[in-house]
Simulated scan of single mutants.
Amino acid sequence: MNVLIVGANGQIGRHLVDILKEEGKHKPVAFVRKEEQVKDFENKGVEARLGNLEDSVDEIKDRMADIDAVVFTAGSGGSTGADKTLLIDLDGAVKTVEATKAAGIDRFVMVSAFKADDRDQWNEDIKPYYVAKHYADMWLMDSSLNYTIVRPGMLENEESKGTITASTDIGTPEDFSIPRVDVAKVIAASLDTEATYEKAFDLVTGKDEISDALNKL
């Protein structure tokens, strides 16, 4: 599959590009918002397309020619305010879902946030972020697309541990962290793992191999 990675220049996105390129099973296509980012990916032998999540649905759809699956791993970042969270994490995600449908693409993987489905678990300090993720996820689930929603715990820049816990009802684990590279590995594995289709699940470091954990969903 040709996989459009929205947010490819982010930390998870860059890991995912590298994983897909190395595995050779699917072709990564980077969706980025700066010309220099396009050049960076092209220098690595990765196709890149220039776009902006504040553009119209039609403009986003125009970047989806010959794409078979879309991964949304974009985010406004921790240094922005609630306005950008609304425009990128919520409306940008929704517009990407709408563009995917309009382009006739069926497969969509969303990177969300741990316990985004449970308002009682939201961190008050970043509540607008959880609101954005919650409603973007709901929009995707109601879209008729073949979705997978990955809700990772606290993201770390650690080396891959390679083992996870993935569950639609994970409870409250003592350690709810996970390396970003392992999130990217889960996304890559989820693309064509049928057990993840039309599923939303929380994700942390655990004891199961990635393929085993996903197939138990």
Results as ranks from 00 to 15, higher is better:
V183C: 04
S56P: 11
A200F: 03
K133F: 03
T148N: 01
G104D: 09
R49N: 03
A74T: 07
T172W: 07
V32A: 15
E159N: 15
F41W: 15
P152M: 00
F31S: 08
I67G: 14
D175G: 05
D208S: 13
S143T: 04
V97D: 02
G13Q: 09
D120L: 11
I164H: 01
A65S: 15
A69M: 03
A103V: 07
D58R: 12
D120C: 05
D212K: 15
G45M: 06
D125M: 14
V94I: 11
E54D: 14
M154S: 15
F31N: 07
I187D: 06
V38D: 09
F201T: 04
D212F: 12
L53D: 06
A184Y: 03
S160G: 12
T172K: 13
T163P: 10
D120P: 08
E209C: 01
K27E: 11
L16S: 03
G51H: 09
A48M: 08
W122V: 06
I210K: 09
D120W: 10
S143M: 02
I210H: 10
D89A: 09
M64L: 14
L140F: 02
D106Y: 03
I170W: 04
V6E: 07
W122E: 04
F72I: 02
P173Q: 07
S79R: 13
L191V: 02
E98R: 14
A102C: 06
N146K: 12
S76E: 10
T96C: 04
D182I: 02
Y130I: 13
Y129N: 14
L16K: 06
P128S: 10
L87P: 01
L90K: 11
H26I: 00
G206W: 07
K115E: 08
L214C: 08
V111Y: 00
A8F: 00
N215I: 00
G162C: 05
F114P: 03
I126P: 06
D120G: 13
R180K: 15
L87R: 13
F72T: 04
T168K: 09
A184N: 03
N52K: 12
G51E: 13
D142F: 00
I170K: 03
